[in-house]
Amino acid sequence: MNTSPIHEKPATTPERLDFYRRLDEKDLAPLWETLATLVTPQPRTACVPAHWQYDRLRGLLMEAGELITAHEAERRVLVLENPGIRGRSQITNSLYAGLQLILPGEIAASHRHAACALRFIIEGNGAYTAVDGERVSMHPGDFIITPSWTFHDHGNTGDEPVVWLDGLDVPIVNLFDTSFAEKYADEVQPVVRAEDDATALYGTNMLPFGYEVRGHNSPLFAYRYEPSRAALAHLAQRGAPHPVHAFKLQYANPATGGYPMPTIGAYLQLLPAGFDGASYRSTDATVFAVAEGSGYSVIDGRRFDWTHRDAFVVPSWVSVSHHAPQGEAVLFSFSDRPAQQALGLWREQGRAA
């Protein structure tokens, strides 16, 4: 691939500077002055690789639980801000991520918004989430989605704190200036379907990673960890690991085979003991959460050692390789790949990609 700029900025002269000044007075600008930064030969992101160690953050989460109630905060979340774009409440240029805490007896009031959301449960049992009147319990490793413009609330009827990783497409929604939000009339929406009535919906609902997918609204919003983990183990028994991804599955909309959300894809991958992954990069910046085990990833030449419950991010078009030298590890991840593929923008590069 030719990575040289498609245009070199022209030399500056007094006459041109005067012309640019007069253009500016009429809200105009010369394209040739900025073309090289607008149309780049490869992605150029301000985002950087970053790693959040859960054991170091948990104390701050619990402190937040003492300082502010879920009612006051609306959602008690510590946002994972990418160090390269601090102050924007974003983990990548297209995605938001944060760690949400709900304490025993608390309720996070019902609301809805244009952005779609996912929850990956990190710690604790006894909490639930409700989406348009359907309530399901939350357990570590579960993957739960909130489709766009659906009322949702959370509660903790147990006796221990519950923490999950939130992922939303808020930056995408705001890019198009299409943010809408609304509070429900009451703190909690009425339950129209109990969890037992919906049990038949829950299952693996996963596809081999890389399967061509299309589709939007999913009738399923809770994907349990146990059957998903079993599907990975079954995949691992059927052959050798992929040199880059090891054993990887993507969560699927059971009605269409497409992604669970139109803008966010989610994945689960098993790194077998001793796995030494090859380098890979793609245009979808990816957020990872460690569901099991420990290991390390080399991102843009830097080594990040991670363990259970940690989170880390790989920016767009930055090389990454995953390694599990001591034992099996399982990584959950999400990215904006569905949106990029729908727009014909997504690319990947790497060994046997």
Rank of each mutant, 00 (worst) to 15 (best):
T150E: 11
A200W: 06
V192P: 10
F176M: 05
P190E: 08
F120W: 15
D197H: 06
H154Q: 07
Q100R: 05
C116S: 15
A117W: 03
A252F: 02
M1H: 08
H322E: 13
V39I: 13
G327F: 03
L207N: 09
R112F: 10
Q189R: 11
G293H: 00
A64E: 11
Y259E: 05
S319H: 04
Q349S: 11
A108E: 13
E15G: 00
R351E: 05
F209M: 02
S279P: 04
R58Q: 10
F334E: 14
N2I: 15
I121D: 12
T256E: 12
H113S: 01
V318S: 02
L103A: 15
A29N: 05
P272Y: 12
S218Q: 01
S282Y: 04
E195V: 03
A130E: 14
D196Y: 00
A285R: 06
P243G: 12
T146Q: 09
G258D: 02
G87I: 03
S218C: 05
W32G: 07
R112D: 10
G158Q: 15
R302M: 01
Q42A: 13
R135E: 12
Y267W: 15
K183S: 14
H152S: 15
W52K: 03
T263I: 11
W32M: 11
E106Y: 05
A194Q: 07
F221N: 12
G274Y: 12
Y251T: 08
P14D: 12
Y251W: 07
F275W: 00
L101F: 08
T40W: 03
V162T: 08
L118D: 15
D27K: 01
S279K: 07
G257K: 00
